[in-house]
């Protein structure tokens, strides 16, 4: 028998290697996609900023665009491996710097939305499971289905129309006011609407996941045993059923952690939030190719890291989990 710690280390290393291979595949696919786009590849790669001939020549040389596609892919991968994601003419700085400068705003929005949705989703999911079949369960599940079907950008617009335009309680967009930059209250006021919009969809999904998993756990033998031993219904629910229902909840939460960048592009566009999603949107509009390629790769990296995190959390939740 291997020691648990040893097998976990082996597991981690394996996952890291397959992760790196996947990233190579993503980078390759991205590059091939770009080279398939209509027009001169160097021009496409420079973005539509009207690059000067010297710069185009530099790109041709570095990516070896005069050689067959496999060589081009090779030189692209080589520069990516060296941490060089290219230079965005439109942003006027290296892609990597642009991404990292937007990261804090994205993390703030995503973090707030994740915490809020985890709280709402798990709470209402457990309530629905405890009262399953009843009126409360029915209303929670109808409400969550409706919330799950709302397009985030439309929900955002409605909230702006109500709370920012009509009631004037909260700012309609941006992250800070011009007259009071740096104030924490100001920041929170800007955060409320985008975080609520973002979290509602995720909370709706979590309600469904939590309800299904908790209801299933409530039918298990150990719950019957706990009941037979005289445990209160509340204790059965919170100490026996819920912990065993958390696994799918973790899957959904970490899944979203990984795609937060793309999930946020619509919300950040509506609320003019200066995060990665907004950067992605601007890059799409200006056909900023190096930026888009960089964001794709960055997003894939986040997803892989989030998956790894999920595996670690499964391990903590259930030490019996076997790693394959």
């Amino acid at each position: 028998m291997e020691s648990p710690r040893g097998s976990f280390a082996v597991f981690l290393v394996r996952r890291l290697i397959s992760g790196v291979l996947l990233l190579v595949a993503v980078a390759t696919a991205t590059f091939v996609l770009i080279s398939l786009a209509p027009g001169d590849t160097a021009q496409v790669f420079a973005g539509q900023a009207g690059a000067d001939p010297e710069y185009l020549e530099l790109i041709r040389e570095r990516l070896q665009l005069d050689r067959p596609l496999p060589y081009q892919v090779g030189s692209y991968l080589e520069s990516v491996a060296q941490g060089d994601l290219g230079f965005s003419l439109i942003q006027g700085r290296p892609v990597r710097d642009a991404i990292f400068s937007r990261l804090p705003a994205s993390l703030l929005l995503a973090g707030a939305a994740l915490v809020l949705s985890a709280f709402l989703g798990i709470t209402f999911g457990v309530i629905a499971a405890a009262r399953r079949g009843g009126a409360l369960d029915a209303s929670i599940s109808v409400f969550s289905l409706v919330a799950y079907s709302l397009p985030v950008f439309w929900l955002g617009q409605l909230l702006v129309a109500l709370f920012a335009v009509r009631l004037r309680w909260l700012p309609a967009g941006g992250m800070r006011s011009a007259d009071d930059p740096g104030g924490i209250v100001d920041l929170v006021r800007h955060l409320v609407l985008p975080a609520t919009t973002f979290s509602l969809l995720l909370a709706a999904l979590l309600v469904r996941v939590t309800r299904t998993a908790t209801a299933e756990a409530l039918g298990e033998d150990y719950v019957t045993t706990a009941r037979a031993k005289g445990a209160s219904e509340r204790r059965v629910l919170l100490s026996h059923a819920l912990p065993n229902a958390l696994r799918p909840v973790v899957t959904v939460l970490t899944g979203y952690l990984g795609i937060i960048l793309t999930g946020a592009v619509l919300v950040e566009t509506v609320f003019v939030w200066p995060g990665l999603g907004r950067l992605l949107y601007d890059s799409v509009l200006s056909r900023d190719t190096p930026m888009l390629a960089g964001l794709l790769l960055f997003s894939a990296t986040l997803v892989l890291l989030a998956n790894l995190l999920a595996d670690v959390i499964y391990r903590v939740l259930d030490p019996k989990t076997r790693f394959r």
């Binding site: 770009i34 786009a37 209509p38 793309t262 592009v265 992605l280 799409v284 190719t289 794709l296 997803v303």
Partner: peptide
């Protein structure tokens, strides 16, 4: 699963 669907669609639509 690694590259989110919306991102793929967005980039493809932007280029093509």
């Amino acid at each position: 699963l690694v590259v989110p669907r919306f991102l793929i669609a967005l980039v493809a639509a932007a280029f093509f």
